[in-house]
Design a protein around this nucleic acid. Structure first.
Lengths: 210, 210
DNA sequence: GAAAACAGTGTACACTTGTACACTGAAATT
DNA sequence: AATTTCAGTGTACAAGTGTACACTGTTTTC
């Protein structure tokens, strides 16, 4: 049985997390948020913050975890859409661009903390991105029968390209965002083609040795 | 004739710029620098800062310009080395990795402000990166006889991949940095191969129409 | 040589920041 | 029913922030 007290505490903790997310924007990064601001937005006295997090860093890491979660939901959604037919590449890019539109601030958080001043933050983001990459790597290896090494190179390149496009998409209007999506699809196709060729060449080379 | 006063002023301005650059590090971003800190590091009274910049943003934009300049020097150096023989891709990546090692903080500045909270900063960085991309695009188009559109896709993808690798390189030791360089070379080769194929296909398609 | 311009200084002020500490009242435990 | 636990409060303080303003001494201009 979970007590009424623990329940209330969880709710308040959630309020702090949401307050921080609400305040994130193009003009406001997490590191520019103060403990007092977050507490105020959550409707709490500044010192109440400490009942839930030891400092802003701890809250920040929690946010990165949340962002990672959202990223995984995105992956699932893309996979589901792909199962229902359509080009893998196009469907993935479209799904990702929708994600950017709906979760701009969460994506911004990841982008910023990826090159931020806290090693712990950088590691946390890096972990989430790596997970994303590995999932794709697995898929490429099995669906396209790619050589393992080549599959990794492709997966890593694809994730990098898509994230970078997402970053660019944050700053532009809907029309330009469409162009960005088209460009990204083109680039992913180029990479897929190149990876396919390299993989074939490598497998042939391995056979000659037998 | 440039007066002794203007000369001194330029020197002090330089001191402010250098003071800011000195204070940048993995743990310290430009936005976390205060006007007073920079002035102190430069050996000036806080209020003297205003004789040279209206606020920290103006100093920051100056730094981004400096970084752009360094980036162009990097490009020139890479081109020169390529003329002296060796693989274009390998030479470029090696040169870039050396740049990261020597100018980590300048590169960090670009990375961070690229997704920072100031629209002006983002635009400034974006401009420098675009310049970089366009140079590469020109080169690809002429050296490899690529279709213009495909050349752009390749150039943009290549720059994205290399910058991202540079970002990763900042956080790792020399040995891992070498692995990173190898990975990047492999990815650029894949992209080059894919772009080549797409360009050929496109040109053939255009000929059938004649 | 007198007057003006101006880079750099020092003081002062209003704000914001994180957090230590003592408190309250309701929930949980005994 | 008495006691303990603990989420949330309010006050207080030292430290740091940007910047307005009046100043000084040297360089430049006239």
């Amino acid at each position: 049985m979970v007590g009424i007290r623990a329940q209330q505490k969880e709710k308040t903790r959630r309020q702090l997390i949401d307050a921080a997310l609400t305040q994130l924007s193009a003009e406001r990064s997490f590191s520019s948020l103060s403990l007092r601001e977050v507490a105020k937005e959550a409707g709490l006295a500044p010192t109440s913050f400490y009942r839930h997090f030891t400092d802003m860093d701890e809250l920040g890491l929690t946010l990165v975890d949340e962002a990672g979660l959202t990223l995984r939901q995105l992956m699932r959604q893309a996979r589901q859409r792909i199962e229902n037919g359509g080009s893998v590449i196009t469907t993935s890019v479209v799904t990702f661009m929708e994600f950017i539109e709906d979760n701009g601030n969460i994506f911004r958080l990841l982008l910023r903390e990826r090159s931020g001043t806290s090693a712990a933050f950088r590691a946390a983001v890096s972990r989430e991105v790596r997970y994303f990459t590995m999932e794709l790597c697995d898929y490429l290896q099995h669906a396209n029968q790619l050589d393992a090494e080549v599959a990794y190179l492709q997966a890593n390149a694809a994730v990098t390209i898509v994230f970078s496009a997402g970053s660019d998409a944050l700053d532009v209007d809907k029309k330009e965002r469409q162009q960005l999506a088209d460009r990204t699809v083109g680039q992913l196709r180029i990479i897929a083609k190149g990876a396919h060729d390299f993989s074939l060449r490598k497998k042939k080379l391995a056979k000659t040795k037998e």
